[in-house]
Amino acid sequence: MLQMVRFNFGVALLLLLLCGCDKVDFKGFVMPTGDVVNSRFEQSFDLHSGTPVACIDAEESYVFYVCTDPHVSDEAKNLKAFAKELCNDDDASLGVVLGDCIDKRGAMPLYLDAVTYDAKEQRYDTPIFSVIGNHDLFFSSWNDFRELIGPSVYWFEVSHSAGKDVFITLDSASGTHGSKQLAWLRDFLSAHRKAYRHCVVLTHTNFFYTDNTQLCSGNLPMEETMMLLDLFGKHNVTLCLQGHDHHREDLMFNGVRYTIIGTIRDEAEHPEYLCISLSSKGAEYEWKLLE
């Protein structure tokens, strides 16, 4: 009897590792689920050739919307509501989704549909930028992300009467930013930070281990965390916006405001998003809950 249980357990474990299910890619526990982070960084630079992916014109004080972890599976009700609110707001200049866009093999087209301009329901074609999260890598979904969404590491600018702001989008989906991305980030901040009024970093994996709500969900290794905290403080990064944890957290560390936004997924008890007003006075937050 025990032998039979052992055998069945072994076979089930092996099958899970080899095939996974449609939601959770167990292979990623022991090996990369697709291209590694350094490779994704190189492919991203091939896609945007080392230039900003967009330059948006805005007022000196402008609003942008941020949500995270929609985990789109069979429908994207909350994400569509977010996009509708954003694209009907006269003051909003852009929107951001901070990763874990999908929750199921092959769901990237559904995600893309939810964040694409819908002229019937939306007044403005306000751009929505996507960050890659760990769930977006499962089942080699990086290929879908690259083809349908674009690069995972990029930056864009917002021009206004007081100068420019820069938004840097990082790829932390593998629990590390990788040596190439970290080297680029160090160089970029050293060379360009002073040219911008505000610098906003957008990334999926939260730097601070703030609670145990997701006991096994990982952050970055300690040495990398400390290096980034030091780097962001040194270069006066204004905001570092993160997801992954599914629970809201907002703290100041070394002069930088680190904010984790709660999940907007359809199954969440209190799905939320954040409206940020950015001006020369700084950043003001307004948290919004979806019904």
Binding site: D25, G28, L137, F138, A173, G175, T176
Partner: peptide, 15 residues
């Protein structure tokens, strides 16, 4: 050998 992201199920080499 230290991997990153094991419990994110998207592990990668770290150290």
């Amino acid at each position: 050998y230290k991997p990153a992201g094991m419990f994110n199920l998207s592990s990668d080499y770290y150290q």
